[in-house]
Design a protein around this nucleic acid. Structure first.
Lengths: 232, 232
DNA sequence: AGAAAGTAGATTGTATACATATTGTAGATT
DNA sequence: AATCTACAATATGTATACAATCTACTTTCT
């Protein structure tokens, strides 16, 4: 039953990449990984190929495999593209949702709430990802899904700090995000496209404002002696 | 030097799928393909995994590999999603284009014109695909690219009949499409986003009207004796 | 006769050994 | 001393043999 191990490897790598346990650009060693999971390099390499197709990793000919890197440009592209795709997906979800899908979505949201109470960053990242992926599945559009999946990978990675609540204000933000999830579910269930889109953009703005703070933090105060130095 | 054969297999399968030489849903046999290309099943399966990630084929556990199928729903999704993605990509291309990219794009367009003159359907499909892919590369947005790629696969397959000019009117359509390509290049080069978007939507509408005719053709005339029969 | 169960053949999935390419290091050369 | 080259060590890529699974057909039982 090595299929089990192969699936576990696939799921583990995904999770470790989303939670930054594996950093962008980190090298993935075939030999040690295959030993760790008790499978040979053949199926392991197939898992790599699949993850590369999903956008999690990059396979470079004869030069090893790395976790998909992130740089300034990818941040820019991300902030530019996410609203378009997320809003479109929410609209389609509102058009298509079936009652049992809403039930599943509420289930995911319950797990998200639990993670918020327990304060586990890893769980919050995981269930937030699942929440938005579930909406994507309700939207059920094979042409938008690839971009949504790619966006969600970096959403999880960039947004990592969002969930790491260190003070009351940040805990409040998480609470707000959770409330928006609930209202989004309601709008989707009601088939109210416009509200779903508006809520999605609000939800997005909340994340973005916070994330941008970490991407482009306020500069450190400059000691008087270095006041003329150039800062990049 | 079997890397050559591996690359050839990858390129050949892509082309054969885009040109419908391999029909949607067609089965891909590992043994015969690996024999045909003189490579073993191991690298062949990696090519499969990669093509699956690109959306060309589907690998089903223990049940073989098939060319990505098309059905009524995928047509619907396609017509719904393409304008959004194509327009966004054109806008980004107009924002980012660099002169040597424009040069490459004109090169592709020249090949497209040649194919139009020669009347080779296969070449028209291929170069039209390349043209829109090149615009995607100019847009240079890793989050939109996955959806654009997926759309272009089915654009080529659905639009197959568009290029099969059987009369003067259809040849005129191809001529119009080629002119739109030229004007789109000009708009992108000039950085004129709004015109690029408008031209893209026009270009799209031209294809769509034609394609829909083949997807949902005019019903056959009903013989008088069957006038009451239900037609779906 | 029809349904269920078993079996042979074909196909997909995996392990291992081997081939090829890359990287780092030591020694030679200028 | 710096650079180049040769070679060893390491990692990636491929072929082949074998194992597991599925499919279709035959046999058995009711």
């Amino acid at each position: 039953m090595n299929k089990r191990n192969k699936d576990r490897l696939y799921a583990d790598l995904k999770r470790e990449i989303l939670t930054l346990e594996l950093e962008p650009g980190a090298n993935l060693d075939e030999t040690s990984l295959s030993a760790k999971y008790g499978i040979s390099r053949t199926p392991l390499r197939e898992v790599f190929r699949q993850l590369a197709g999903d956008g999690y990793i990059e396979i470079r000919d004869n030069r090893g495999t790395i976790v998909s890197p992130m740089n300034h440009k990818s941040m820019r592209d991300f902030f530019m593209t996410a609203p378009l795709v997320y809003a479109s997906v929410s609209r389609l979800a509102a058009q298509n949702a079936r009652s049992e899908q809403i039930r599943d979505l509420r289930e995911v949201q319950a797990n998200f709430r639990r993670a918020a109470r327990s304060g586990s960053v890893e769980d919050l990242v995981f269930w937030n990802d699942r929440f938005h992926l579930a909406i994507g599945e309700i939207a059920d559009n094979q042409y938008l899904m690839p971009s949504l999946r790619r966006l969600l990978i970096d959403h999880a990675r960039i947004g990592q700090t969002f969930w790491r609540a260190r003070n009351a204000e940040m805990r409040q933000r998480i609470e707000t995000a959770a409330d928006q999830h609930d209202r989004l579910i309601d709008a989707i269930e009601a088939g109210d496209e416009e509200t779903a889109v508006a809520l999605t953009l609000d939800h997005w703005a909340l994340s973005r404002d916070h994330m941008e703070m970490f991407v482009r933090p306020d500069p450190l105060p400059i000691p008087s002696g270095f006041a003329a130095a150039e800062v990049e």
